[in-house]
Write a protein that binds this DNA or RNA. Structure first.
Length: 519
RNA sequence: GGCGGGGUAGCUCAGUCGGUAGAGCAGUGGAAUCAUAAUCCAUGGGUCGGGGGUUCGAGUCCCUCCCCCGCUACCA
C-alpha cells in the first residue's frame, strides 16, 4: 500500500499568450492519467492546472487586441479550460494567477523570503527580451540584420533595460540545492535531467532579478508598489496557492503540500528544479517531492514551430482519431521523458494494431460468444485448469506492475505490461478454441469464456485511466458496476458474478480506415 | 571547449554481473474461422558507427576517431 493516501500533482500553468497545442495537451494528459489511476487506487488526489496570466508580453497583447489586460486574460484563459474539456482532464482545480488567492499567496511568500534576508534591492542593467521574458548577457546578444540587437540563440529582439530591481540571493543556495538533489534522488526525473540540473548548479549560481519596476501587469511587491514581481516567482507560486498557502494550517495545505509531482516540459526544467526549491527553502517551505521533465513532439518528423505553422491543434486530432486513441497514442508511442514524433501513420498503426485488432477484437470475439452461447450472461465456470490459472494469475499480477510503472511515470511501460496480457489472452482463446468446445464440451467452453471475461475485467479497469470512455464501455459490456471499477475490486474477491445479464456487445475501438482517394 | 546521452534488423527500439544477437511493426509462408478481413503459428546471412586493445570469449570493459542530440562555457 501507499505510504501516504494523499497525492498532489500539477501541470505547469499555461501562458495565456500561447495557443493551446499538442504540447500543452500532452503535459496535462500525463497528469490526468496519473490522477485517474491514483484515484482508482484509493488515493486522495489533488490535480491542479491553470493559467499564467501576468507579464509584459500579455500586457502588450492586450493592448494589441484593444482590451484591458484582465478582459484579455479572461478570454484567453478560457481556451485552456476548453482544451481540458476536449481532452477529458479530471483536474480538481483550475488556478489563475490573476485570482486574489494567488496574489495573497505570492505576496506572503515574498514576505517570508524577504524577512529571512534573501531578497535585496539592487540595480538591474542588461538586455531583456520581451518575447522570452528573459534577460540576456552581453555575450548572448548580437546585432541583427536590421541593425537591431537580438539574441544569438533565437534571434528575439532585446532591449536595454536599466532599473532598480529586487534580487533573490540564489547564489547563496548552491550548497543547499546540491544537498537537496543528493538526499532526494527522485526529486528530478528523468535521470539525465537530474544530471543536467546538478551540473548547472555545481557550475555556480547568480542572484536572480525577481522584480521589475517598469512592469505594471503583475503582482505588486509587498511594501514597494513601484515594483512588480518577476513573472517566474509569480508563476511558480501557483503550486502552493492551490493548496491554500499562506494558510498553512488549513486542511488543503496540510493534506497535500509538499506536492508529489510537478509535471513539466523540458524547457522549464530549471525554473522548477533550481529556482523553485530555492525560493521555497528560503521561505522555510518544504520543496516538492518530484519534478518530471518530459520531452517534445515533432510533427511528421518536423520540429513544431510557429513559422512552419505545423503546431497540432488537439481539437483537430481528437476530431479525427477520437479522444481515447489520441490519449493512448501519446503515452504509448515513446518512453515517457524522450522526444517523440507525431505522425498519421504511427497513430493509425497504434489504433488498428493495438486497440482495434488486439484489444478491441479480443473483447468482441469473446463477448459475442458469451452473448450467443451463454444466454447473454456471465457464464458459470467449472474447475480451473493450469492454462486458466496461468492467464488469471498474469491478469491479477498486472495491477502491481502498472502501479510500479506509473509511480515512476513510465506510462509506455505500463501499457506494454497491459498489452502482454492482451496478447496472452488472444493466444489462450486460440488454444482453447471455445468455438470447438461449444459442440464437444459446453461446460468447458463456459469456463474458458469466463476466464477471458475475467481477464478483460482486469484489462478494462487498468486501461480506465488511459482511455476512460472506451474502457468504461468495456466494463459496461462486462456488467461491472460503477462502484466495482477500482483496483481494490481486482483479484479473486471481485470476480464477475455468473449469471449477470450482459448487453449485446458492440465494437469498442474502431479501425481507422483511410479516406478513399479523391478523384 | 567542458559535461552528459546516443549511434543494434526496412522502421521504432530492448539488450541485466562480458559467454553462440532480441521485441514490436512491415514482409513472406502456413493454420484456424469465435471475432472489428480481426486471431494464432513459423520465418531475421543485421560488418551491433569506424579502428585498435584487454580476454579463452565483447553491443556488453579500455583507448582512439567519426556523426547526432541535450546541458553548459567561451569568443580574443
Amino acid at each position: 500500500m501507499a505510504a501516504r493516501a494523499a497525492y498532489y500533482l500539477s501541470t505547469p500553468i499555461y501562458y495565456v499568450n500561447d495557443s493551446p497545442h499538442i504540447g500543452h495537451a500532452y503535459t496535462s494528459l500525463a497528469c490526468d492519467v496519473l490522477a485517474r489511476f491514483m484515484r482508482l487506487d484509493g488515493r486522495d488526489v489533488l490535480f491542479l492546472t491553470g493559467t499564467d496570466e501576468h507579464g509584459q508580453k500579455v500586457a502588450k497583447s492586450a493592448v494589441a487586441a484593444g482590451m484591458e489586460p484582465q478582459e484579455f486574460v479572461d478570454q484567453v484563459s478560457e481556451r485552456f479550460r476548453a482544451l481540458g474539456e476536449v481532452m477529458g482532464y479530471s483536474n480538481d482545480d483550475f488556478i489563475r494567477t490573476t485570482e486574489a488567492r494567488h496574489t495573497r499567496s505570492c505576496q506572503e511568500l515574498w514576505r517570508r523570503i524577504s524577512d529571512n534576508g534573501h531578497i535585496y534591492l539592487g540595480k538591474y542593467a542588461g538586455w531583456y527580451s520581451v518575447r522570452e521574458e528573459a534577460f540576456y548577457a552581453e555575450s548572448d546578444v548580437v546585432t541583427g540584420p536590421d541593425g537591431d540587437k537580438v539574441t544569438a540563440s533565437s534571434g528575439s529582439p532585446v532591449e536595454w533595460v536599466e532599473e532598480p530591481s529586487y534580487f533573490f540571493r540564489l547564489s547563496a543556495w548552491q550548497e543547499a540545492l546540491l544537498e537537496f538533489y543528493e538526499k532526494n534522488p527522485e526529486a528530478v526525473a528523468p535521470e539525465s535531467r537530474r544530471n543536467e540540473v546538478i551540473s548547472f548548479v555545481a557550475g555556480g549560481l547568480n542572484d536572480l532579478s525577481v522584480s521589475r519596476a517598469s512592469l505594471k501587469w503583475g503582482i505588486p511587491v509587498p511594501g514597494d508598489p513601484d515594483h512588480t514581481m518577476y513573472v517566474w516567482l509569480d508563476a511558480l507560486t501557483n503550486y502552493i496557492s492551490g493548496t491554500g498557502f499562506p494558510d498553512t494550517e488549513c486542511d488543503l495545505y496540510q493534506t497535500y503540500w509538499p506536492a508529489d509531482l510537478h509535471m513539466v516540459g523540458k524547457d522549464i526544467l530549471r525554473f522548477h528544479t533550481v529556482y523553485w526549491p530555492a525560493f521555497l527553502m528560503a521561505a522555510g517551505v518544504e520543496p516538492p517531492t518530484r519534478v518530471f521533465a518530459h520531452g517534445w513532439w515533432t510533427i511528421e518528423g518536423e520540429k513544431m514551430s510557429k513559422s512552419l505553422g505545423n503546431a497540432i491543434d488537439p481539437h483537430h486530432i481528437v476530431a479525427r482519431y477520437g479522444l481515447d486513441a489520441v490519449r493512448y497514442f501519446l503515452l504509448r508511442a515513446l518512453p515517457f521523458g524522450s522526444d517523440g514524433d507525431f505522425s498519421h501513420r504511427a497513430i493509425v498503426g497504434r489504433m488498428n494494431d493495438d486497440l482495434a485488432n488486439d484489444y478491441g477484437n479480443l473483447a468482441q470475439r469473446v463477448l459475442t460468444m458469451v452473448n450467443r452461447n451463454c444466454g447473454a450472461a456471465v457464464p458459470e465456470p467449472g474447475p480451473f485448469e493450469t492454462s486458466d490459472r496461468t492467464l488469471l494469475d498474469e491478469a491479477e499480477s498486472l495491477p502491481g506492475k502498472v502501479r510500479a510503472d506509473l509511480s515512476r511515470q513510465a506510462f509506455h511501460q505500463a501499457l506494454i505490461h497491459i498489452w502482454e496480457v492482451v496478447g496472452h489472452a488472444n493466444r489462450y482463446v486460440d488454444e482453447q478454441a471455445p468455438w470447438v468446445l461449444r459442440k464437444e464440451d459446453p461446460a468447458r467452453m463456459a469456463t474458458v469464456l469466463y476466464v477471458v471475461a475475467e481477464t478483460l475485467r482486469h484489462l478494462a479497469v487498468l486501461t480506465l485511466s488511459f482511455m476512460p470512455a472506451s474502457s468504461g464501455r468495456m466494463l459496461d459490456q462486462l456488467g461491472v458496476a460503477q462502484e466495482a471499477r477500482t483496483l481494490a475490486a481486482l483479484g479473486p474477491e471481485g470476480r464477475l458474478a455468473p449469471g449477470t445479464a450482459l448487453p449485446k456487445p458492440e465494437p469498442i475501438f474502431p479501425r481507422f480506415v483511410e479516406d478513399s482517394p479523391v478523384s
